[in-house]
Design a protein around this nucleic acid. Sequence first.
DNA 1: CCCAAGGAGTGCACTGAGTGCCATGCGTAC
DNA 2: GTACGCATGGCACTCAGTGCACTCCTTGGG
Lengths: 247, 247
Amino acid sequence: MRTLPGATFPLMSSEKAGAGTGKPPMRDALVAAAFQLFLERGYEQTTIDDIVALAGVGRRSFFRYFPSKEDVVFPDHERCLADMTAFLAAGSGDEEPVRRVCDAARLVLRMYAENPTFSVQRYRLTKQVPGLRAYELSVVWRYERALAEYLRRRFAARRDGTLQADVIAAAVVAAHNNALRSWLRSDGQDDAGATVDHALAYVQSAFGGTPVPPAGEQPEDVVVVVSRRDAPLWRVVQEIEATLGRG
Amino acid sequence: MRTLPGATFPLMSSEKAGAGTGKPPMRDALVAAAFQLFLERGYEQTTIDDIVALAGVGRRSFFRYFPSKEDVVFPDHERCLADMTAFLAAGSGDEEPVRRVCDAARLVLRMYAENPTFSVQRYRLTKQVPGLRAYELSVVWRYERALAEYLRRRFAARRDGTLQADVIAAAVVAAHNNALRSWLRSDGQDDAGATVDHALAYVQSAFGGTPVPPAGEQPEDVVVVVSRRDAPLWRVVQEIEATLGRG
DNA sequence: CCCAAGGAGTGCACTGAGTGCCATGCGTAC
DNA sequence: GTACGCATGGCACTCAGTGCACTCCTTGGG
């Protein structure tokens, strides 16, 4: 029974990595030990006892830091979710709502992109283990709810505001996840930012309100669109976007 | 230790309820016993031993019919998912894809609407128990994947086909769930079909392809749309739909 | 310098979900 | 009648997760 020399991954602590180190070294040691074993012999073949033995700590301490075995695989989502909630609450209230939730989604991507190797290994793990996939769904669901709640507030005056909020939040999350998975499958080689921008642009093209007018340019009051009637609607939307001067 | 007189709810068996009864009466007895106890004392306060004692069967038999404790709460989703997959595979391939997945989503609603009281009780249960919510997410995820896979096939030729497939599938599921929850909150009093139609119409207004032209009516070759530039895009899309002669 | 308080870490025993294995009973085919 | 298959039941086991009590170790106050 050896103890780990140090964190194998550049793991983020609960606190911001300031001048000193984050507060709980034990937490990071548990994550490192867990991932080492998960990658060696698989998630289900690794027991809590194995993890705490490798980390050199007591079994009871594991559950002090992680409420369940699944949580050790997603050690940073709690902080990221708090960041997203804070970001959405921080706005002045006159931002374009769809753009705002897209920007919030980019926060999640940035967290993944901060530790590419860790993210890719976790991706491979969750892809294989059904229990982890289910857990990830509940994590993603909380992000989606945060976006939807924000949109519901912003759409409070609209008819069908909650419906639109739920649908747009789901679309944003789906687009984000599509781009994220594409990036993860590339082993972190692709340009994550560009991929997610492209995906979110599609959502904005379908749901976005007024495209941001370039500063100093007077928006036209009316716009005329001409389309063949049998063209698919999404093509029409693209044309509208183009006509309106947005990429 | 009493045994149950019969199924408390009009439970659907695994087989279609044809002339005779479905094959496993034991399965239905377990579901009935489980729900009785869940409603009496709560999900977490009920053990598998409690359930099998009330149902009058051996503990091992429970896990013969349900792989986990959560599964007994969603006894019919497996069949419904198979129905949806079959429905999507049955098409001739020239249907409008978005309309097709909307129709597939209506299959799920119909399953809920078949047993309103059961559905409402289950809704209250899952709303309270985090573990059941997480399980429900994994169920919903499978529906969403079925829709997305269908759309991916239909969109194989498109650029960004998989992105569009994922986003539209997520939007359809979100709209369906929004309507479903609204109906469940009304204790099954609202018109479920109308509610979900309205919700899905919003998704179709954003993503729908060519609206079905009424038979015998010649489509115009071009259409002109005029809109105020600062109108939200979804309003523009609604206008387009209206101009094109769709709801 | 001593002691009290509190928090972090630990050991222990316990509950309950889920699994593997084998025995039992029952109906059917040969 | 016997053999086979199948549904069920019983038993023992693993392992995640929890409650409780104990030990340090640090901090602060007298």
